[in-house]
Structure formats: structure tokens, C-alpha cells
Amino acid sequence: MKKNTYKSIINMKEIARQAGVTRTTVSYVLNERYKKDLKITDQVVQKVFAISKKLGYRRNALACLIKKGNSNIIGFLGDIGEQGNAYMTGMLKGMTETLQDNNYLLKLFSLTDQNFKELCRQCVEQRLGGVICRLSDELKLEYLRREFAHYKIPVVLLGNSIQHDWCSRVITDDISGITLALEHLVSLGHRKIGHLTIDVEMGLVIARREGFIKGLKIAGIPFKKKSIFSIPPGFAMHKDYYALFDNFFKSFKPTAVICASDALAMKLEIWAYARGVRIPEALSITGFGNQDFSLLACPPLTTIAQPMALMGKRAAEIILEIAEKKEISYSDELLPVKLVIRESTGLACDVSEQIIERAIKKNH
């Protein structure tokens, strides 16, 4: 069997050996610093270039940049498999295209609770030109701030984390997104509208809750605390999330529910199917995110679409601007969202409360 043969990487040491000069001389020539050194003759310069071309030498641009204190690599720190392919793929596409157009590369760091500190260390050791981060855990963000500040690595946060004065954010207008969903439901005749969210104080949860309260005020609907129902993080693994939803509908009896995410809306649809509650005839549901599975829901979800590719593009543009200017200044950029109407919302039903109440009792 014929063995594969691979060329060894040609380095300056080998060029110096064949040219009969020192490695330092080769470095001066190939990095075009020979013009400042009158001791290097034109004959030596031509010889070094000729041998490097013959050997197929390729300059290690990354090593040169790191030696200067930075690189043309931007890191992305986040959960790469997060929330469905289209959601993350859109952001990564926007980042990658923008960075490539400016001769930068994107390096992905797939984040978990276990590897967070190690990945931060790698970002510093590799002297990244900047980091785009999708992270909402405040303790992790504070650790990241301390680690990166000393090395002046700029950071741009993607998504509605809590605002900070040490990094830029590219966020979507989640408040307006929820008010759009509420306006849509009101136009269908709904007046008793609930908000299903997660029981955690993170930026996007806070913004979407504020949007719900604001939307009620605009519609002239009095706000009631029990109209917002928060369930524990990790609800998908809860041994009986059906009971959680039962309690919500027993206490408030909404005819429509605005969910803080498509995942929550999907779970609510599953609950409705199990309880025999027809959507949208007896209950209207909206999600948030326009993720892949929102189209596959039964029925397909009315939801709020976020411009994921634009988010990635703007994050890359901001990090490049900081990296090129060498001046770290931070700000927030708010991107618009839009309502996507599908089959999970419909006209309000006068007897929705009775239908849902009977359905819950029947299953107990």
C-alpha cells in the first residue's frame, strides 16, 4: 500500500540554512524590515525571497499578530447548540460574513457550566482581538469582566442581558415585541390575557414582563399580578409541569397567553392537547423567538421574530470598530422585531373560561 507523504512546514530556520544567513536576517527580509537595516544587501534580500518562494514558505500571520499583543481572531462564547439551529445559525452567519469581509476569523467556544473558566483562560492566552458573548448569568459575566479587563479584550454581549458599563450590547426590542403580541390578541377580542414566563431575574425575562405590563396599559386593560405566571427554570424537566399550568388557569382563567419564549409556548400547546383544550378555538397562544420548531408546532405558533443575522452582523461590526480604533467605548444597540401571525391565535371565545375549567376538572 502506498503511504501518504506530507510536506513538513517550512520555517525561517530552513530558509536561513539554505541561504547561508542567520534566522534574524531572514526574519528582517520576510517581514520587510530590511529597508531599515543597511547591513542587509540587495543580493541577500533577493536570495532569501527566491529560496522562500522555491520552498513554498507561508508566513504565520497569526503568530506575528499575537507577538504584537493581539490577533485577528474574534471569539464567540456561548451555547452553540442553543434553542434550535436557525436561532444560533442566523447569528453565527451574520458574524462570520462580516468578520471575513474584514480579514478576521471567528473562533467558536462552546460554553457549559463546567468549562466556562477554562474557555475564558483560552481567550486570554490566545490574545483574541475581541469576544462576542451570549451569556446572561451575572456571576459569570463579572468573572469574564475581571479576566478580560487587564488584557483590554473588548466584549460585546448578544441578547437582553442586564445592562453593564463595561461592554456593549446588541439587543432586540423585546418590550415592543410583547406589546405587538398583546395588540394582536386585543384586536381579536381578547381582554383576559396572561403572561407565561420563567422565574428568574435575567434581562430578557425582565424586558418581556415589562412589555406585557406596558401593552396592557396601552390597551386599557387593568394589570393583575396573577396574570403573570412564572414557572421554575428547567420546566421542561419538571416531573409534572401539567400541574403548574393547571394552577395558572385555575387562578386567572385567561383566554389568551403570551409566552416569554417559543419553548414555553410549545409546552403550553402540549398541555392544551393533553387536557383537550382546542387551539385557537378555546385558547390563543403566542411565543417569542420564531425558532425552527415554532413552525412545526400543532398548530404553528404565532410568535415574535428576532433579526438574528443582523444581531450577529452588528455585534461583529461593533467589535471590529473597537479593535481597529484601539479605543474601548461601550453602548447599546436596539434592533426591531416583528410579529409573525400563524394558526395558534384566533378570535376570543365567550365560553373559553368554562371550556378550560371543565377540561382541567375532567383530567383530575
Rank of each mutant, 00 (worst) to 15 (best):
K7T: 13
S8K: 14
S8N: 12
S8E: 15
I9N: 09
I10R: 03
I10L: 03
I10P: 00
N11D: 13
M12V: 00
M12L: 05
M12T: 12
M12Q: 10
M12C: 05
K13D: 15
E14C: 06
I15T: 08
I15P: 00
I15V: 06
I15K: 02
A16E: 01
A16G: 00
Q18K: 12
A19D: 01
G20S: 03
V21E: 01
V21W: 02
T22L: 05
R23I: 10
R23V: 08
T24G: 14
T25F: 06
T25K: 02
T25Y: 03
V26H: 00
V26S: 02
S27P: 01
S27W: 07
V29F: 01
V29G: 02
V29T: 02
L30H: 06
L30T: 04
N31P: 06
E32Y: 08
R33S: 11
R33V: 06
R33E: 15
R33K: 14
K35Q: 14
K36I: 10
L38P: 09
L38Q: 11
I40D: 06
Q43P: 01
V44H: 05
V45A: 05
Q46G: 08
K47E: 12
K47H: 09
V48R: 02
K54F: 04
K54E: 15
G56A: 05
G56M: 07
G56H: 05
G56N: 04
Y57C: 08
Y57N: 07
R58G: 04
R59H: 14
N60P: 08
N60C: 11
A61K: 12
L62E: 03
A63I: 07
C64D: 15
C64G: 14
L65W: 13
K67C: 09
K67N: 13
G69T: 12
G69Q: 08
N70F: 10
N70G: 10
S71W: 01
N72S: 13
N72I: 08
I73F: 11
G75P: 08
G75I: 03
